[in-house]
Amino acid sequence: MRVEIIADKCQGHGMCNMVCPSVFKHDEDGFGYVVAELAEVPAELQDEVRLAEVQCPERAIVIED
């Protein structure tokens, strides 16, 4: 599983960071990004990443299985 945040869509609601803080962080300007080493998502974090994807109010998170 690969995960990415579409920068144009992210408005920095931070839901992803709330439900999966190890994969999703915020930059200085308040927008989300995926921690590079975890963009290929380890098995134990995949449920949390899926939860982040469906909770994102701006639909900015894209998962490729």
Binding site: H13, Q55, P57
Partner: peptide, 23 residues
């Protein structure tokens, strides 16, 4: 509830600045 893409903190570029404090 999942999914829950609510707009209680607003939506788009003007989403609530204080969202992380409010939560």
């Amino acid at each position: 509830r999942v999914p829950n893409r609510h707009m209680g903190f607003g939506h788009g570029p003007h989403r609530c600045l204080g969202i992380h404090l409010a939560r």
